[in-house]
Design a protein around this nucleic acid. Structure first.
Length: 474
RNA sequence: CGGGGAGUAGCUCAGCUUGGUUAGAGCGCGGCGUUUGGGACGCCGAGGCCGCAGGUUCGAAUCCUGUCUCCCCGACCA
C-alpha cells in the first residue's frame, strides 16, 4: 500500500505508482503490458493532443499492416542491421511452415516505402503527408512498463517530398510544432529540442532530431523523435518520380513518432511521494468531488448538491466519488495517488455555510470557496495548476542543467547529482564512447541550429565543433 | 548469453535447516452490524495440485534429480 519514497528507491516508486494508480500491469508474455482504463484515458488524451496537431499541419491518417515479408526488411542495409536483433518473426501459421517468414513490424518504413513506390510517379504526387496510429513490436531485453515494452502503441508519420530542404523542414516542424508543443502544453513536460549524434541516430536516417525531458531522478528521457531520411528509403525501395524538368529523381523522406513511453514521462516528471500529479489537460478526471455524510439522509442531500456542482462545471471532467465502502480519508489518499488535480470536499457543514472545501494536488493547498464561485474559479485553478506543474518541472530541469569546464567536472556532475551536462565536443565518436564507458552518460542532444565553435572538446582537448549535452538516459 | 535471487491463497510473505496432526499470517475479497471532515472497527465466511515431472520414504511444501518460469545486475533500444 505505501509507496516507496522517490528519493530512496525511484524505480520502485515508479513501478508501484503505475500499479497502485491502476495505470497498467505487466502481462504474461515478457515485456508486454495491459493498459488499464485509467492509464488508457491518459494515453487517449496524449493521442488527441498529438493527432490534432498532426491534422492541423496538413497530414492524414491511414493504416498499414502488422506483418511485413522478411525480404522487404532486408533492402535498406543500415535499417536491417539496426532492427534485425529486435525483430519478432512469424515462421509458422495455418499449421504449416511459411514459405517466407513474416516480420512483426518494429516500425513501418519498409512496407510503407515499398507501397509509396506505387503511389508516386510525378512531382505532382508529392508531398505525401501520412501518419498511422498502431502497435509495434521490438524484442527488448530489459523491459520497463510504459518506458520500454516489447509491444507498444505509437504513431508513426511517414512523408515523401520533392526536395531535401522540404523534407528537412518537415522533420523539424514536426519536432517543434507537433511534439514539443503537445508535450509541453498538454503533458506539461518541458523538453530540450536537439539533434542526435551518429551513434544515437535512427537506423537508416541521415539526421535524427529528438525532444528530451529530465525526469525527477535526473535521468533524461527521449520523448519523441523526428528523422530526416534523405533518399535512403527511396533508393532501397525504388521510389522515383519525374521532376519538374522531366528527370527521374528519388523522393526525400521523413519519419517521426511518439509512443506510450510519454505516459511514463509524465509520471516521472510530475509525480511525488504521494503518487501521480497529473496536469489538468492530461487528467482523466480534472476534479473529484468527495461527499461527506454520516447517514443516508445526509448522503442524499450531499450527493444531490455534488451533482448540482458537477452540472455547474460545464466543460470540466468531474467525478463524484459516492462509494459507500470507503470513508473520506481513504478517498483523499486514493485520488491523490491517482493525481487528480483538484479535489472538492463537500459535507453538511459546507452546505450549511454554502461553501466547498477545495484542495490542489500540485501544492497541497486547501481553501474554502463560496459555492457560487465554483463555476468561475475551478477553470482558473485548473489553468493555474497546468502552468504551475510546467513551471515546477522547468525549474527542476534548469536546476540540474550544468556547464562543465573539464572532463573531471563532467564525470563528477553526471555521477552526482546527475542531470544535463553541457560541454564542447570535437565530433569524434571515440570521445563520445569514452564518456559512455566512464560515466554511462550519452550525448542526449546537439543544438538544432549550428552554433559558433566553442573552445575545446571536453574529452580530448582538441578543437570543439559544437556543444554537446550529456546525461544518463532511460 | 554471462553473474545473483525467487517460485506456497488474488497480493506480500512465513513454514523447509532437523520429513510426521486438518499448511499459516497480514492485506485484499464476500455477508451482517456499527462507522464516515485525512488510509475505521467487530463478528462470520470463501479462497491452496506448496511451479511442473520423476525419485527416496510407511509418510514429502520440506530431502534428491531433472525441467520450466519469473525477478534483479551487465551488452541493444521509442
Amino acid at each position: 500500500m505505501a509507496l516507496p519514497k522517490q528519493s530512496e528507491d525511484f524505480p520502485g516508486w515508479y513501478q508501484e505508482v503505475v500499479k497502485q494508480a491502476e495505470l497498467a500491469e505487466t502481462s504474461l508474455a515478457r515485456g508486454t503490458m495491459v493498459i488499464k482504463p485509467y492509464g488508457f484515458a491518459i494515453w487517449e488524451a496524449i493521442q488527441r493532443a498529438v493527432d490534432d496537431r498532426i491534422k492541423a499541419t496538413g497530414h492524414q491518417n491511414l493504416y498499414f499492416p502488422l506483418f511485413i515479408p522478411y525480404s522487404l526488411l532486408e533492402k535498406e542495409a543500415e535499417h536491417v542491421e539496426g532492427f534485425a536483433p529486435e525483430v519478432a518473426v512469424v515462421t509458422h501459421a495455418g499449421g504449416e511452415k511459411l514459405e517466407e517468414p513474416l516480420v512483426v513490424r518494429p516500425t513501418s518504413e519498409t512496407i510503407i516505402w515499398n507501397t509509396y513506390a506505387k503511389w508516386i510517379q510525378s512531382y505532382r504526387d508529392l508531398p505525401l503527408l501520412y501518419n498511422q496510429w498502431c502497435n509495434v513490436v521490438r524484442w527488448e531485453l530489459r523491459p520497463r512498463i510504459f518506458l520500454r515494452t516489447t509491444e507498444f502503441l505509437w504513431q508513426e508519420g511517414h512523408t515523401a517530398h520533392e526536395t531535401a530542404d522540404e523534407a528537412i523542414a518537415e522533420a523539424r516542424m514536426i519536432l517543434e510544432d507537433v511534439y514539443a508543443d503537445a508535450v509541453e502544453k498538454v503533458l506539461a513536460v518541458p523538453v530540450r529540442r536537439g539533434r542526435k549524434t551518429a551513434a544515437e541516430r535512427f537506423a537508416g536516417a541521415v539526421e535524427t532530431m529528438a525532444i528530451e525531458g529530465l525526469m525527477r531522478d535526473r535521468k533524461a528521457l527521449q520523448a519523441g523523435t523526428s528523422h530526416y531520411l534523405g533518399q535512403n528509403f527511396a533508393k532501397a525501395y525504388g521510389v522515383q518520380f519525374q521532376g519538374r524538368g522531366g528527370d527521374l529523381e528519388f523522393a526525400y523522406a521523413t519519419s517521426w513518432g511518439v509512443s506510450t513511453r510519454l505516459v511514463g514521462g509524465a509520471i516521472m516528471t510530475h509525480g511525488d511521494d504521494k503518487g501521480l500529479r497529473l496536469p489538468p489537460a492530461l487528467a482523466p478526471y480534472q476534479v473529484v468531488i468527495v461527499p461527506i455524510y454520516k447517514n443516508d439522509d445526509e448522503k442524499g442531500s450531499v450527493v444531490a448538491k455534488a451533482r448540482a456542482i458537477k452540472d455547474s462545471l460545464t466543460g470540466v471532467r468531474v467525478r463524484i466519488d459516492d462509494r459507500d465502502e470507503h470513508r473520506p480519508g481513504y478517498k483523499f489518499n486514493e485520488w491523490e495517488l491517482k493525481g487528480v488535480p483538484l479535489r472538492i470536499e463537500l459535507g453538511p457543514r459546507d452546505i450549511a455555510a454554502d461553501q466547498v472545501m477545495i484542495a490542489r494536488r500540485d501544492t497541497g493547498e486547501k481553501q474554502t470557496l463560496p459555492t457560487g464561485e465554483v463555476p468561475a474559479r475551478v477553470p482558473r485553478l485548473l489553468e493555474d495548476i497546468q502552468v504551475s506543474l510546467f513551471a515546477q518541472a522547468s525549474a527542476f530541469r534548469d536546476e540540474y542543467s550544468f556547464d562543465a569546464k573539464d572532463y573531471g567536472e563532467l564525470a563528477a556532475l553526471i555521477a552526482d547529482p546527475g542531470g544535463f551536462v553541457t560541454g564542447g565536443w570535437c565530433g569524434n565518436p571515440e570521445c563520445e564512447a569514452k564518456v559512455k564507458a566512464d560515466t554511462k552518460a550519452t550525448i542526449r542532444y546537439l543544438p538544432l541550429d549550428p552554433e559558433p565553435p566553442a573552445g575545446e572538446c571536453i574529452v580530448c582537448g582538441t578543437a570543439a565543433v559544437e556543444r554537446a549535452t550529456w546525461a544518463q538516459a532511460y
